[in-house]
């Protein structure tokens, strides 16, 4: 019996074999994570808006190079930018977001007009990539400009505690890492 077992073991070594393998399958590996992050947050209290008077109360550009970082711009497949605007002031307000290229040209613009309180939360999702706006907008964006405009009066005050206009934004980008 022992001899038999030894023979079996020896034979299994001698006739060791391998199933067919296809290492080229590795080329088919697809790694496409979806990354989520907040982009920017804008907030102004009602007092500041009233002090500025009717019309523009804020206009500012700032560098924003998250989109044109090579890791994003080289790999992005598609994405969604989500905006949430919340107004608890007593006046109608307009917030405009401009995506600018390095020369200051407007690549994309999104404008939000929101009623005085009690206004519902305004949500908007902008798709980029297939079926949406061009990914080149994101790839070439180096600056963001935020404009705030008071479309109402400059004297009324909201009964809410700490009345504000708030704009939140986030991005969810699907990247092709492989």
């Amino acid at each position: 019996m022992k001899k038999f077992v030894c023979h079996i073991i020896l034979i299994s070594m001698i006739f060791s074999c391998a199933d067919d393998q296809d290492f080229n399958q590795f080329d088919d590996l697809s790694v496409e994570p979806t990354l989520a992050s907040s982009i920017f947050y804008f907030e102004s209290d009602e007092t500041t808006i009233n002090l500025a008077g009717p019309g523009a109360f804020y206009a500012q550009s700032f560098t924003f190079e998250a989109f044109n970082e090579a890791f994003i711009s080289d790999n992005i497949l598609d994405g969604i930018i989500t905006y949430e605007v919340e107004n608890t002031t007593s006046k109608e307000l307009q917030i405009t977001i401009d995506f600018l290229d390095v020369d200051g040209n407007i690549l994309d613009s999104e404008s939000f007009i929101i009623q005085p309180e009690p206004a519902p939360l305004l949500e908007r999702q902008i798709a980029y990539g297939a079926g949406g706006r061009s990914l080149d907008i994101l790839r070439n964006t180096t600056d963001i400009r935020v404009n705030g405009e008071n479309l109402g009066d400059a004297v009324s005050t909201s009964p809410q505690t700490e009345p504000k206009i708030i704009l939140r934004s986030s991005a969810e980008f699907r990247l092709k890492l492989r």
Partner: peptide, 16 residues
């Protein structure tokens, strides 16, 4: 939580 602009604190901040 991303870039933050808060008014009135950032009204005089001209750093872009």
């Amino acid at each position: 939580e991303g870039v933050e602009i808060r008014l009135p604190e950032d009204l005089t901040n001209l750093n872009n």
